[in-house]
Design a protein around this nucleic acid. Structure first.
Lengths: 154, 154
DNA sequence: ACTTAGATAAGAATGATTCTTACTTGGTAA
DNA sequence: TTACCAAGTAAGAATCATTCTTATCTAAGT
């Protein structure tokens, strides 16, 4: 996830048919810089506020929802209620820690492949499949350290 | 999912170390009758209110959370925010329809098996695994008809 | 039946999100 | 370039779900 310049951000907005306003560019920039995290609107607002004190919280809420509708970002599913956003639009799964309440990206090409293969063996009636992902529930052993999930080396 | 008698419900509450109050029995009974659905607290409240007009909404909220803590029911992950509950505590996945906003249970033993096998091939560092499930995103073709996902017959 | 820790009713308080309205602006076309 | 207007925004009011508070009540053990 390279950092995009404001002009590149502007292009992506226009490509979605959205007016490239200053507010949208800044919200987009801020949320993209949080790749790997899953912020709520308020958090995005707090981050961009110092450099952009005139942008209102309501605009951040509205803008994030607009981005989801346009597919620029995703919502992430939560157990607690509350809307969280995910800058990562690649297929990936999430790890939910019941201890720290963290939501951690889990990218695993083999898993994605496995699921795709699986759903090829299924006949879906009356359902137009868009995507699927896995949610892993559990808890961090040491709350301050990172979680890693990797292939077992033979 | 057979209907449990009130005495059986009472036993299950006591087995979890919970006082078997009238309110808890009624909330438990109501939510269990919604097997396959994923109600919010308000919906449970509306259902039990006619026969139990003295139970307050706050109690329903609190009781449902107590049940989740005790493992009698689960929360279900939502994209919209808002807390929904799942009477089904067996391992299963969910289908999310972006059209009707429905959340539909998807039980598939082969999928569960596949995931278990997969995670055996992974080494988790600093994470105590509890469970996992799949979420299927898409939309119903005909909103009023049921979705079915079944093995393709050879 | 007596006791008491825990549970509840009622409604106030909170907090997140949406809505309203008057004002502003990006992008288009003259 | 300028003028125009559909769309976007700021500000704050309104709404809605959920939690909290407190006085009262009750299940279950003695």
């Amino acid at each position: 996830m390279q950092n995009l310049t404001r002009d590149e951000l502007r292009q992506r907005l226009l490509a979605c048919g959205l007016k490239a306003t200053h507010q949208r560019i800044v919200v987009f920039e801020t949320v993209m810089a949080l790749h790997g995290q899953h912020p709520v609107a308020e958090e995005v607002y707090q981050l961009l506020k110092p450099a952009n004190p005139s942008i209102s919280l309501g605009t951040v809420y509205k803008t994030l929802d607009t981005f989801v509708e346009s597919g620029l970002i995703n919502r992430v599913f939560t157990e607690e209620g509350g809307k969280r956003y995910d800058p990562n639009t690649e297929a990936h799964s999430h790890i939910y820690c019941s201890n720290t309440k963290e939501i951690i990206d889990f990218e695993d090409a083999e898993l994605d492949q496995l699921l795709l293969e699986f759903f090829k063996t299924r006949n879906m009636e009356n359902f137009q499949f868009r995507s699927c992902s896995v949610q892993l529930m559990g808890c961090k052993v040491e709350p301050d350290k990172k979680v890693t999930i990797q292939r077992v080396s033979k």
